[in-house]
Design a binder for these strands. Structure first.
Length: 253
DNA sequence: GCGCTTGCATTCAGATTATT
DNA sequence: AATAATCTGAATGCAAGCGC
């Protein structure tokens, strides 16, 4: 069971499962992990020809379109962690990577379950491709429980693989959908990303209070700290609120 | 004008290096 | 040895520049 030595690719083993996440860098909205199963080269080629690529390179509208087709055409699994659940998990695990690993493992395991039912005569070894940042150890531990041998390949640019690209599209589309739903529920248009979210957080906090923010946002982001300082719920910090205050590597600029 | 690419902004954790 | 600081590399969005 390799954990993907540098330079090691998935080779020509099929089927493959790709797994990717969305919402990790977004202050508002859920964290979504999706996994997609691709049976063989013809299916991978179909993904490429349809224009399925890393969701970052596709617009929101294209992501939504492609996700409909992918869901119709490929076995898939989407795990959505609502902001409230995310915040609970973060309190328990204290580490974003552990949450990611847990979510990836859940998505992959659920998907394995369904393709074992759907695809007869499945190869005894299944290749799972994830991006390099997804922690492989927890994923493998979760999958070791299965009788089937699973080979986890970790790739720095995993989204180049069609199965991972498809997963990134599904994850992104679900993220956008959930973010929009949250917006409707609270009567606010939540921005994507983490760059310009403070004014919206401020408005929501002023109007609905802290609980609303816990329902809609990732609490441990710096934005929360900034807001709480601003409204006097927290003193100006002299040390980092989430571990090492010097974690910001390069200066902004 | 539109679409793609690039650069820069934000977030994060982990590894490495420097200091006490 | 323990702690603090720095660096690296992953994610995200947005805006500007460029070519068609």
């Amino acid at each position: 069971m390799g954990n993907g030595a540098p330079g090691e690719g998935p080779g020509e083993r099929w089927p493959r499962l790709g797994s990717d996440e969305a919402g990790k860098g977004d202050y508002f909205g859920p964290l979504v992990v999706a996994a997609v199963a691709v049976a063989g080269p013809p299916e991978a080629e179909a993904l490429r020809s349809a224009g399925v690529t890393d969701s970052k390179r596709l617009g929101d509208a294209r992501c939504r379109e492609l996700s409909v087709w992918i869901k119709k055409s490929f076995p898939h699994e989407v795990v959505e962690i609502s902001p409230r659940r995310y915040n609970e998990l973060y309190d328990q695990m204290g580490n974003l990577n552990r949450i990611l690993a847990w979510a990836h493992a859940r998505a992959v395991e659920n998907l394995l379950g369904s393709i074992e039912r759907e695809w007869a005569g499945l190869s005894p070894e299944i290749v799972v491709v994830v991006d390099q940042f997804a922690p492989v150890a927890v994923l493998e531990r979760a999958l070791f429980a299965r009788a089937r041998q699973v080979r986890v390949i970790q790739h720095p640019r995993a989204e180049a693989a069609p199965e991972v690209a498809a997963a990134s599209v599904l994850a992104r589309a679900r993220f956008l959908e959930s973010l929009a739903r949250l917006g409707e529920k609270w009567g606010i248009k939540f921005p994507k990303g983490a760059a310009h979210v403070l004014p919206v957080a401020r408005e929501l906090y002023a109007r609905e209070g802290e609980e609303a923010l816990r329902e809609t946002a990732k609490w441990h982001f710096r934005t929360t700290e900034q807001l709480l300082v601003e409204v006097g719920q927290r003193p100006c910090r002299t040390a980092g609120s989430s571990g090492n205050s010097s974690k910001r590597g390069k200066p902004a600029g």
